[in-house]
């Protein structure tokens, strides 16, 4: 019988050191480990190195608070609720955040290599773009590709002629192996088996690629329940290092079958994030102004959370007003 190592949000954030490399579950504004993100900000983490297939509200919360030094990814924004990643953009323009752009599928290739213990993964996607322009190898230009940081590969990518079937040139993308995977999953078993509901995004790969894995579970359930349908699970308990049970732990991002995206919250955050001042006001109210995530939920209020509640059959809210009609 396996067992889980249950810890608190404060303890989890305390394990993460300044300068660590992090990756996340989810996709843009869905299934992000938000409760832990807020706690990282509260604890004042510095110089974090984010590697993610795409960014979202969680990235912007960290970047706006000055927690991020390196951001390797391909996209950041809040989908329909905020068209840009204002804090990352400000950091890139001002030079306080080192941005290394890849394409979505190139990021996936990097995670696949990391997940499967390979030094690189080949892909022919997104050739002929400025992503591959050697002038725009920003970590290289910053002198970080000298092998001194084991998390930064010696090259941004390489190109080789296909030696097997003579298909032409193909790219090799270096493995990404973050120190930490911060994951939000709907269900974790009492022996650590992980299940996410609906799309899996890159969670399987992030869990395998990272050295240590922290999962925020919306609910902890008997492992036997998850083992009745093993094909629906994404990771065995032994791959998970720490578990936090935190209802609404992904708010304001969405969690299929539990709650929808809190569009109003993200819209308001996006507006605030357009200036450093605005961000500070947001953080003073929603991050530093509350003692922890329970107080944050209390501040949101039961009516707001009920509106987001997913229809248990459809998997998303069927009662909240989404558009103009």
């Amino acid at each position: 019988m396996g067992k889980i190592n249950k810890i608190t949000l404060k303890e989890a954030a305390g394990l993460i050191k300044d300068g660590d490399m992090l990756s996340f579950s989810g996709f843009t504004i869905w299934r992000r480990p938000m409760a832990l993100i807020y706690e990282l900000v509260r604890q004042g983490k510095k110089d974090l190195h984010l590697f993610e297939v795409n960014g979202g509200t969680h990235t912007e919360i960290l970047a706006g608070a000055g927690c991020v030094k390196i951001w390797e990814s391909c996209w950041v924004g809040h989908e329909l609720y905020g068209k840009l990643g204002e804090s990352v953009a400000r950091g890139q323009v001002e030079g306080s955040i080192l941005v290394e752009d890849y394409s979505h599928a190139q990021c996936v290739a990097r995670l696949l290599a990391g997940a499967y213990g390979l030094p690189f993964f080949p892909t022919a996607l997104s050739m002929g773009t400025d992503i591959l322009n050697p002038k725009f190898d920003m970590l290289g230009k910053a002198g970080l590709r000298d092998g001194s940081n084991p998390k930064i590969p010696l090259k941004k990518y390489d190109t080789i002629p296909d030696p097997m079937y003579d298909m032409g040139n193909i790219l090799l993308m270096p493995a990404a192996n973050p120190d930490w995977a911060l994951v939000y999953a709907q269900q974790v078993g009492d022996e650590g088996t992980v299940r996410v509901l609906a799309q899996t995004y890159v969670d399987l790969e992030v869990i395998k690629a990272a050295k240590k894995v922290i999962v925020i579970a919306e609910e902890i359930v008997p492992d036997s329940y998850l083992r009745d349908e093993p094909a629906l699970n994404i990771a065995p308990g032994y791959a998970i290092d720490y578990v936090i049970e935190q209802p609404f732990g992904a708010h304001p991002t969405g969690s299929q079958f539990f709650y929808d995206v809190d569009a109003d919250f993200i819209r308001a955050f996006y507006q605030a994030s357009k200036s450093a001042d605005g961000y500070k006001k947001f953080a003073d109210e929603w991050i530093f102004g509350v003692d922890g995530f329970d107080e944050y939920l209390e501040k949101l209020g039961v009516n707001r959370l009920l509106k987001l509640k997913a229809n248990s059959v459809m998997g998303y809210s069927t009662t909240m007003k989404r558009g103009t009609r």
């Binding site: 391909c74 996209w75 840009l84 990643g85 941005v99 394409s103 599928a105 190139q106």
Partner: peptide
């Protein structure tokens, strides 16, 4: 900065 590539080039 705009959003970035996403899956567009892929």
């Amino acid at each position: 900065r705009f959003t970035g590539s996403g899956g567009n080039p892929d």
